[in-house]
Simulated scan of single mutants.
Amino acid sequence: MLTITPFAVVATVLYLILAIGFGFKKKVSIWRQVLSLLFFAYLLVVVDITLFPIPYTHNGGDIQANNLIPFKTIMAILKDGSLSNDFSNIGGNVLLFAPFGFLIPLLFRKQNSYIKILLLGFLGTLCVESSQFMISAILGFTYRSFDVDDLICNTVGTLIGYAILRVCRYLGQKRMWVKLSPILAVVVVGGILGYEYTSHSTPERAQESMDSNVLPLVTVPLSKGVVLVTPTDPKTTTKAGYEAWYFEKSGLLGWRLKATSIDELNHSVSSLTANEQTFIWGVTGNSNAESVLYRTKGKFYKSSVNAQGIWDIVLPFTQNISSGGSLSLVLHNGKTDTLAFQTNKNNEN
């Protein structure tokens, strides 16, 4: 998994060299240098959100589909009927390019009309979407989809940012920045909150923001959220195996991690609990395994075993799995073996 870190380090070093060189040679004002730095930082944020992390291989999940039909994705999101989902997907794309329309006219005085900003915003987001398409072509699978609706939302966001700037200028040239400061503060805070929410707008993005070196192999609905099962990352833990992440949606803060558990490939059964439900899971280590049965309180709960050997069972109640039931492994030949694995406890946040 390639993160933005090496790219950001190289880009920052080059920017500082050029900024310092031009600053002394052209005697650029401090205000203009600050604006340039803000714009550079903003571009890094856009690149991070839209292009990174870049996986080296496909994780086996569903491949994203490109969309060339205007408003198809937008209408599908609106039909979902979720205001928070509308904000994260549509509003997030609009807000992402609002600073672009706000900062460009301040840095480049000739770019000071709705038509010019419209064209620049469209070209900027087209560059982003085309980069996603080209990187996907190089990888051999669609890691980020090319969506014409993203072009629409981003371009609208650029126009909104420019409109905000025009309103600020309309307030008057004298002491403009005094009048502008509350609005600018709102834009900055809104941008930070928007970025924070966008980075946690889905469980997958929230997990990526915490560990971008692994991707989910299994996604399971649980209680008020979902569980993502990923390989453990040797860069962040010495425990080799798999990890389950339980995320819940926290209003405008997006999806947040609530509990985790790790299977260390020692034929253990792991679990975590959330809101009176219990998530039991593990890795069989047996290529002949077909399914797993859990028997408790006179009832059976069944799970199939996927290609990685991962299985999971959701119990609609809180259960101490080490003493409250029994596990059986069903093989492809129909035979059944009893599972008597050591239990790993979950870590709740």
Rank of each mutant, 00 (worst) to 15 (best):
Q132C: 00
I77K: 12
R295V: 15
F133P: 01
L228G: 02
K239W: 10
Q132F: 00
L180H: 01
K25N: 15
G325Q: 08
V292C: 05
P231S: 10
G282W: 04
T50L: 06
V167R: 12
A98K: 07
A98Y: 07
L38H: 09
L96Q: 10
M75T: 15
G298A: 15
L51D: 00
K174E: 12
K116A: 09
N286A: 07
S304E: 06
K249T: 01
G334H: 12
F122D: 06
Y246L: 03
S199H: 07
I192R: 11
W311R: 03
E208C: 15
I74F: 09
S36Y: 12
K27F: 12
L14Y: 14
A41P: 02
P316D: 04
L272D: 00
I20P: 13
R256G: 01
F100L: 11
L165A: 02
M1H: 09
V189L: 12
W281K: 05
L118R: 05
V187I: 12
Q132G: 00
L107K: 05
S212E: 15
P216V: 09
G121D: 02
G23Q: 14
K110M: 07
G190R: 05
L18W: 15
Y42C: 00
V220Q: 11
D263P: 11
K302W: 10
G191C: 00
Y162K: 12
D233Y: 09
L126F: 04
L83A: 14
Q64H: 11
F141H: 07
T142F: 01
T238M: 11
N320S: 13
L253T: 03
L339M: 09
V187E: 14
Y294P: 02
D233C: 01
I138E: 01
K224T: 06
K179Q: 08
M176D: 06
T232Q: 12
I17S: 11
L193G: 06
N333S: 13
I117W: 03
E348L: 02
F247C: 03
T237N: 01
L293P: 04
Y242W: 06
W255P: 04
Y294R: 02
V186E: 07
P316C: 04
E129K: 05
D80V: 11
G285S: 07
T230M: 07
L215Y: 13
L120N: 09
G285F: 14
G172V: 12
L103C: 09
L78D: 05
Q277K: 02
G282V: 01
V156K: 08
G61H: 09
V28F: 10
F247N: 06
T57K: 11
A98G: 08
A8W: 08
T273N: 00
S223V: 00
F100Q: 05
Q277P: 00
A163D: 10
V148G: 05
N112T: 01
I262T: 14
F71P: 13
L68Y: 15
F52C: 13
K174R: 10
A11V: 10
L103S: 13
N320A: 13
C153D: 06
S36K: 14
L43Y: 03
P55E: 13
T343A: 03
